[in-house]
């Protein structure tokens, strides 16, 4: 047990969940949660953007990790994804913030 290190109190990124104490007493929800049309569509858009080399899975992850902690836990899995996709498309200059805002307002 000599390998136990004293400095594992160093702050961690909130997506880095291995062994995090606050989740250790939670039961794992093993139920089926069917994917929605929204979930499948986000998944497909991400896959296509990867295949077309518009953005990589690594960029997707970076964008997910950049979501502030409270929101990260509030959002569903694929809600985090679409947020990261939109973020990355702007970072890459594929779309602009003004375009995204205007399109959202026009919906």
């Amino acid at each position: 047990m000599s390998n136990v290190l004293p400095d594992h109190d160093v702050p961690r990124a909130h997506h880095d969940m291995g062994g995090v104490s606050k989740f250790m007493c939670d039961a794992v929800d093993t139920g089926d949660h069917a994917l929605t049309e929204f979930d499948r569509t986000v998944d497909a858009v991400r896959g296509l953007l990867g295949a077309k080399k518009v953005m990589s899975v690594d960029e997707l992850r970076r964008g997910i990790e950049a979501i502030p902690e409270a929101e990260y836990h509030r959002l569903s899995y694929y809600q985090r994804w679409i947020r990261s996709i939109a973020d990355n498309l702007m970072v890459r200059g594929v779309i602009t913030e003004a375009e995204l805002r205007a399109t959202l307002e026009g919906l």
């Binding site: 858009v45 953007l49 518009v54 996709i85 594929v94 399109t103 959202l104």
Partner: peptide, 24 residues
């Protein structure tokens, strides 16, 4: 922050823009 928009709307806007630009 534009990224805090409703997720369903964000998806609709992103797919509309990607189609408009001939990407997806």
């Amino acid at each position: 922050n534009v990224l805090e928009a409703d997720s369903g709307k964000l998806l609709a806007a992103v797919t509309a823009l990607l189609a408009q630009k001939g990407i997806v």
